[in-house]
Amino acid sequence: MDTIPMTAAGYAALEHELRHCQQVERPRIIQQITEARSHGDLSENAEYHAAKESQSLNEGRIAELEDKLARAEVIDVSKLSGDTVKFGATVTLIDEDTEKKHVWQIVGEPEADAKNGRISITSPLARALVGKKKGSQVEVVTPGGAKAYEVLNVEFR
């Protein structure tokens, strides 16, 4: 069983989602199924089939979350230090073409959220950054073409 590296915040977010799926969504969907059943003939009952589909998706998500939480290896980023990029690091980069600054935290796959500045340890950018230090140049091939960055800062918060 492969472990999944994760920050404490990422683990807590998955636990919260699991509780929501189990304690809020599951009872709500069961109620929908019960109501739809009371409408009679199930073979032509779109509400019933939609509720059963929702139930299937919710139960699948619960199983997925339970698996990820069971395999989680929580890493306390606040106890990490050093000047080398590794899991948990918050890295400030400057795009060498546009001079635009980007700040990314390298996190586990289940908690990655690029819109909020968290990229997966398995992403091409994170793989290129791991092992680099402040001042290093990094080139990454992205779907939009090659990008060149300079590492401005590495910190653990």
Rank of each mutant, 00 (worst) to 15 (best):
K68L: 14
L80R: 11
D41K: 06
A9G: 04
G10S: 07
Q137G: 07
Q23V: 07
L65C: 06
A50P: 01
E111Y: 04
F87H: 08
V91M: 01
V24Q: 12
S136M: 00
E150S: 08
H49Q: 15
E139P: 01
Y48V: 02
A50T: 11
V103T: 15
H16N: 11
K115E: 14
E59G: 04
P27E: 07
G117P: 06
E17M: 12
R19K: 15
D76T: 10
L129W: 00
D97I: 06
A51T: 06
A13G: 08
E139S: 15
T34Y: 06
P124A: 13
I29E: 02
Y149S: 03
Y48H: 11
L125I: 10
S56H: 14
R71T: 09
R127W: 04
R157M: 12
L14N: 04
K86C: 12
T122A: 12
K101A: 13
N116P: 03
I75N: 08
F87Y: 14
P124Y: 01
K86L: 01
E15T: 04
A63C: 05
L125Y: 00
E47S: 10
T90G: 03
E47M: 13
I94L: 09
R157L: 08
Y11L: 13
C21Q: 11
Q55H: 14
V141G: 02
A13T: 08
Y149R: 00
E111I: 08
L152W: 04
T90E: 15
P27A: 14
T34N: 10
L125V: 05
E17K: 08
I94P: 00
L80G: 06
T7S: 11
I119C: 10
R26F: 08
T90W: 05
R19W: 04
S78R: 12
R71A: 09
G135C: 11
H39W: 06
P143G: 11
G60Y: 07
Q31M: 08
I94Q: 07
A46R: 04
K100H: 12
K134D: 13
K52Q: 13
S54H: 13
S120I: 02
I29P: 00
G108Y: 07
A70F: 03
Q105N: 09
G82F: 07
K115I: 11
R61I: 10
I75V: 15
I119G: 03
H20Y: 15
E17F: 02
C21S: 10
G131W: 01
V141N: 10
Q55L: 15
R28T: 12
R26W: 04
V130N: 02
N58L: 12
L65A: 05
S81V: 06
K68S: 07
R28G: 03
N116R: 13
K100T: 11
S78C: 08
E96M: 11
R61P: 03
L18K: 06
E73R: 12
R71E: 05
R118Y: 04
D95P: 06
